[in-house]
Simulated assay, not measured.
Amino acid sequence: MEDGYAAQANSSAPLDFDIPTQPLAAALDQFAATSGRSALFSSTLVVGRTASPVHGRYTPSDALRRLLEGTGLVVEEVTTGSLSALVVKQASPELVASAATQRAAAQDRVRAYDSLLQARVWAALCADPEAARQDYQSLLRFQVAPSGRVTDAELLDSTGDRRRDAALVSTLRRVQIGRSPPPDLVQPVTLLILPPQDGGPVCAEKAE
């Protein structure tokens, strides 16, 4: 007999999830509370397993798949009439191996995009006289649209200079990464700017 949650009406709208690494049973409880979706599972199946963290905006089914990454379990969506349930079950060995390969490839894509993103942002900041000054620290947050353009840029920690703060946000809003973000990129993106002596990038000196 399975434990879990009774099936509810299907909902595939993206939602904001903030589920940390924790025992799988507790993570499934939090998933259900956030999504309002059913999650049917055997209590013996989840014992001793740890959920992967899920932070960002996803559909319930995508969020649950991310939550189950690395657990050896998979989710299957079962629909009967107007009702649907997300059923958690044991993955086949072949599927586990395939999932591990896909996770590694996804991580490689995110690392490559993260490097590109930082390079594009820093090039834009170095091109602005106010933003290029190297004597400040700041914290920025932004989204990357499917077009590759930076959106929703905001300053989380002031540099101590209003003019420079405005230059940072204005410059960031004009950045075009040039490629769509991979689906596994966690958004919004947070960027910490440090002075060079603290490990921050250095803008190249312009030729006279």
Rank of each mutant, 00 (worst) to 15 (best):
Arg174Glu: 11
Val175Arg: 05
Asp62Glu: 12
Ala39Pro: 03
Asp16Ser: 08
Arg162Glu: 06
Ile193Phe: 13
Asp18Glu: 15
Ala27Cys: 11
Pro146Ala: 01
Arg103Tyr: 00
Thr171Tyr: 15
Arg162Ala: 06
Ala204Cys: 09
Lys206Arg: 13
Glu76Asn: 13
Leu86Ile: 09
Pro188Gly: 00
Asp161Arg: 15
Gln176Ile: 15
Val74Arg: 11
Cys126Thr: 07
Gly200Pro: 07
Ser38Thr: 05
Gln22Glu: 08
Ser170Gly: 14
Ala99Ile: 03
Arg179Asn: 04
Ile19Lys: 06
Glu205Tyr: 13
Leu83Arg: 14
Ser147Phe: 01
Pro146Asn: 00
Lys89Met: 09
Thr44Pro: 09
Ala27Trp: 09
Ser147Lys: 00
Ala119Thr: 09
Val144Gln: 01
Arg133Phe: 15
Thr159Arg: 02
Phe31Val: 07
Val144Phe: 04
Gln143His: 07
Arg65Gln: 12
Leu140Val: 05
Val202Cys: 02
Ser12Asn: 07
Gln30Asp: 14
Arg120Phe: 11
Leu116Asp: 06
Ala99Cys: 02
Leu73Phe: 08
Ser82Asp: 13
Ile177Gln: 04
Gly178Lys: 00
Tyr136Gln: 01
Ala132Leu: 06
Ser115Phe: 05
Val189Ile: 00
Asp16Arg: 12
Asp184Gln: 08
Ala112Thr: 14
Ala207Asn: 13
Ala106Pro: 05
Ala99Arg: 04
Ser61Ala: 10
Ser82Met: 15
Leu86Phe: 11
Ser38Arg: 01
Ile177Val: 12
Arg149Ala: 11
Arg164Leu: 12
Arg173Gly: 14
Ala106Trp: 00
Pro201Ser: 10
Ser147Trp: 01
Tyr5Leu: 06
Ala63Pro: 08
Arg49Val: 05
Arg173His: 09
Leu28Lys: 08
Asp161Tyr: 04
Asp114Trp: 04
Gly72Pro: 04
Arg65Asn: 13
Arg111Met: 12
Ala7Pro: 04
Asp152Asn: 12
Gly178Ile: 03
Leu185Ala: 00
Leu192Asp: 15
Gln176Trp: 07
Leu192Arg: 12
Gln90Val: 04
Gly199Pro: 03
Ser11Trp: 14
Leu191Thr: 02
Val87Asp: 06
Ala131Ser: 10
Ile177Cys: 04
Arg111Tyr: 09
